[in-house]
């Protein structure tokens, strides 16, 4: 019923508007086309000026309303560079924006048709063209210079002491693997992926480096002020590790590993003290990946070193999850539960 009324109102609005438009056309013809054309010319010129003024106020008002809703200062060292580049660009383009928009609408208003004025025959001026080729070129060179300088800082090699975490995207969630005590991620092969055999990322168990790798889902822990290097991949389709608070982003591509690194500057607790209990460093999938794309959320918890050590100490390497009988800490009885499939998987896995 409600939608019926909405449609009825729309149709009525149409009819009214159309009748007015038609009437104004007839009135125009009666009063003389030239005269009514000049009147509508004045009205539109005035409206262009009004649009400029209200538009500028609108730009200011919009900024007042929304500036506190963007994310606040960056929470990573690289993000600080990104923000700085953003503000440099904003300042330069802001000047151009106001200058050209004001010129556009002001000229339109000022040079509206008038019987008193003759248009000025002004087909070209090479000096002017040269000026407004060279000035944008110089401005853009500055922007390119800063941009590339920061870009190489951000995309350069991760420091030697960086901790490594492997991130794997899948429809629709995130999986993480820590290299364990040896600091090396074991080799993997996608055909080994088998959730039923407790091998979610396809680790090759023959590789010694795999035996201490730790696997967790949805929540990743990192250490404040310690560089972290993410090795990123995907199982099914392209995803993207989007870290809005850290200003970082990298695609997760099946078959082509990618990396990025950054240093978190504030722990989750510090941010919760500042922004409220609900605060979380969220991982958003930024590349269209199917029907659950909009809800593909992960969380990064930034810990102090002690908190992190305590957290990781509570985790069992995935090798022991897959082969409970090999786990030195587990009671012997557990290992007798399912011995047969374990042997089978050991022999078939490469």
């Amino acid at each position: 019923m409600q939608s019926f009324f909405v449609i009825a109102i729309l149709v009525l609005g149409f009819v009214v508007m159309f009748q007015i438009a038609k009437a104004s056309e007839y009135v125009g013809i009666l009063r003389g086309e030239e005269k009514s054309r000049k009147q509508s010319n004045r009205v539109n010129a005035f409206l262009l000026l009004v649009f400029l003024i209200l538009g500028l106020i609108g730009v200011y008002y919009c900024n007042e309303q929304l500036k506190d809703k963007i994310l606040g200062p960056s929470a990573s060292d690289h993000g600080i560079l990104v923000d700085r580049m953003l503000y440099i660009t904003l300042a330069l383009t802001g000047v151009v924006f106001f200058a050209t928009q004001i010129a556009l609408f002001w000229f339109s208003f000022k040079y509206q048709e008038s019987d008193k004025r003759k248009a000025f025959y002004y087909p070209h001026n090479n000096k002017l063209e040269l000026i407004w080729t060279v000035i944008p070129a110089i401005t853009l060179t500055i922007l390119v210079g800063f941009g590339i300088f920061y870009w190489f800082k951000i995309t350069g090699d991760a420091p030697k002491n960086a901790m490594v975490v492997e991130v794997t995207g899948k429809q629709f969630g995130w999986e993480f693997r820590y290299p364990g005590n040896d600091g090396v991620l074991g080799k993997k092969y996608y055909k080994n992926i088998d959730a039923a055999k407790n091998n979610p990322v396809g680790q090759i168990w023959d590789d010694e480096a795999n035996k201490d790798d730790i696997f967790v889902e949805q929540e990743m822990h990192v250490v404040v002020n310690k560089p972290v290097k993410l090795v990123i991949g995907a199982k099914d389709v392209i995803h993207d590790v989007g870290l809005a608070h850290f200003r970082m982003k990298m695609d997760a591509v099946p078959g082509t590993p990618t990396t990025m690194w950054f240093t978190p500057l504030y722990t989750t607790k510090q941010m919760q003290d500042k922004y409220g209990k609900d605060f979380a460093y969220e991982i958003s999938c930024d590349q269209m990946c199917g029907k659950g794309h909009w809800s593909m959320r992960g969380v990064i918890v930034v810990d102090t070193q002690e908190e992190f050590d305590a957290w990781i100490a509570g985790k069992k390497p995935q090798y022991y999850v897959a082969f409970p009988d090999k786990d030195p800490s587990a009671p012997k009885a557990d290992s007798l539960a399912k011995p047969a499939p374990v042997v089978a998987s050991l022999t078939t896995d490469k």
């Binding site: 010129a45 248009a119 002004y122």
Partner: peptide
Amino acid sequence: TTLWRGNIRF
């Protein structure tokens, strides 16, 4: 510059 000092019909 095309608009500048024209005699603009809207």
